[in-house]
Design a protein around this nucleic acid. Structure first.
Length: 416
RNA sequence: GCGAAGUUGGUGAAGUGGUUAACACGCCGGAUUGUGGCUCCGGUAUGCGUGGGUUCGAUUCCCACACUUCGCCCCA
């Protein structure tokens, strides 16, 4: 038997309906914020991610799906959404007219070669959005607001936005040096992973789970203390705006994010004070890094699958229609034609209609009525049909009524 | 890449080194039924993840691998 690949999954049935529900909420919310939907290719030149996400990151070094196509091109299945969108932005020269910011959102499959576990797969979905062209703190606030409200509208109330600022390049570099100076003499007291991180990505030592409670981490220099005046002002202004918008946030001075391209504000949306459901931040250097002009950007990505999981764990009610409007039964095969015709007629008039296609006995057809959870059913029989009549029965109240076949749509319109 | 647990039918599962692998749900057929939903009767596994090994004999013991689930790294 050929089975699905590790870390992939089929989406169908109730799961598919839940996702359709979530998608609808997210789509309509993006519309309110005037973000346009974008789809970029699943695979891109490998270099896009190496340069965009960061050559040194684990994501690029050991988690990408890389392959050569038949033309010897080095390609990579996208491990995240931002790089592709930035490529699109540059390639189509959208920077040519920056009289308004360019705002897009995506809802797409991503691929990372990882060990699957709860809320994490090799093929997974991210919903995310990017805003290009504004370096105003207003755009930071808008992005956070959009992300925050998405979770709220999905029924996740117990969320908080954790924010921090890495500052501009100058601040960030000053901080990095200070952190290294501080950590180097003390590194042997930290865990093995942290010792490795010192070289690769020292900022991440700050949110190490093992050493979280150690004094070394607690007393480490904070990014905030190394912000220059403009960066600091900007961070304060953002907090004012979030207060104004009544967004539940807290400053987390140890929040750094995994990808190289972030600067200034970074944030995560956290559920129940522990479980991160999405994250984002500003990436003012990224467009330039990828070959475009110096255009600022800010964005966010939601871990779609884990958000759905969280909704289930939080007991969020997701409305799912698991019933049909009407089931057509027939006593003998002579009424089949009528069933075929009538089913089409009802469907075209907007009703969810089913009939038997398995040559079932009448008894078995009745079972189908209940399996499909039909609101109404009709047993077609030649006797009634002779007079162009049909007996429709409400499957809940069990009341039945004889209706002219031509009045059936009107009857259903009135009763449903 | 590292660690833990698991892998029996459409589903939930019980079970044993040796003739026909419990039980339940579901599904199919039949009886009864005024056109069903209750009840009753009958049927329903390419044989126990894959490949090796031990054995007279393995689904049951051993090894490897795969997959699933959970955790670490990483990410979100």
């Amino acid at each position: 038997m050929i089975t699905k690949q590790k870390g992939t999954y089929d989406i169908y049935g109730e799961e598919a309906k839940k996702r359709a529900y979530v998608d609808e909420i997210l789509d309509s919310l993006c519309e309110k914020y005037n973000y346009g939907y974008i789809e970029t290719p699943v695979f891109e030149a490998s270099e896009l991610f190496h340069r965009g996400v960061g050559e040194a990151t684990d994501m690029v070094q050991k988690e990408t799906y890389d392959f050569k196509d038949r033309g010897d091109r080095m390609l990579t299945l996208r491990p995240e959404g931002t790089a592709g969108v930035v490529r699109w932005f540059i390639e189509n020269k959208l920077y040519g007219n920056m009289s308004e910011p360019v705002k897009v959102y995506y809802n797409a499959k991503m691929y990372r070669y990882e060990r699957p576990q709860s809320g994490r797969n090799r093929e997974f979905t991210q919903w995310g959005f990017e805003c290009f062209g504004s370096d105003d703190v207003m755009s930071d606030a808008e992005v956070i607001s959009l992300a925050y409200n998405a979770y709220r509208l999905l029924g996740l109330d117990n969320i908080v936005v954790r924010i921090n600022s890495l500052g501009d390049d100058e601040s960030r570099n000053r901080y990095r040096d200070a952190l290294l100076d501080y950590l180097k003499p003390r590194i042997n007291d930290l865990c093995e992973d942290c010792q490795k991180r010192l070289e690769k990505n020292p900022l991440r030592i700050l949110d190490c789970k093992v050493d979280a409670d150690s004094d070394i981490i607690k007393n480490a220099p904070k990014t905030i203390d190394y912000l220059n005046d403009t960066s600091k002002e900007r961070f304060d202004k953002l907090k004012d705006l979030l207060d104004l918008m009544d967004i539940n946030y807290e400053v987390d001075v140890n929040l750094v994010r995994g990808l190289d391209y972030y600067n200034h504000i970074v944030f995560e949306i956290v559920l129940n004070d522990s479980y991160a459901l999405g994250g984002g931040g500003r990436y003012n250097g990224l467009v330039e890094t990828l070959g475009g002009p110096n255009i600022p950007g800010v964005g966010f990505a939601m871990g779609y699958d884990r958000t759905l999981l969280a909704m289930e764990e939080e007991g969020v009610h997701i409305p799912i229609n698991d019933s049909i409007d009407i089931y057509l039964l027939y006593v003998s095969s002579s009424e089949k034609d009528t069933a075929a015709y009538l089913a089409q007629d009802l469907r075209l008039n907007g009703f969810v209609c089913e009939t038997d296609m398995m040559s079932k006995s009448l008894k078995a057809q009745f079972k189908s009525v209940d399996r499909y959870n039909a609101k109404y059913f009709i047993v077609l029989n030649d006797e009634d049909l002779k007079d162009n009549m049909v007996t429709i029965k409400d499957n809940k109240t069990k009341e039945e009524e004889k209706v002219n076949i031509n009045d059936l749509v009107d009857y259903l319109d009135m009763h449903m």
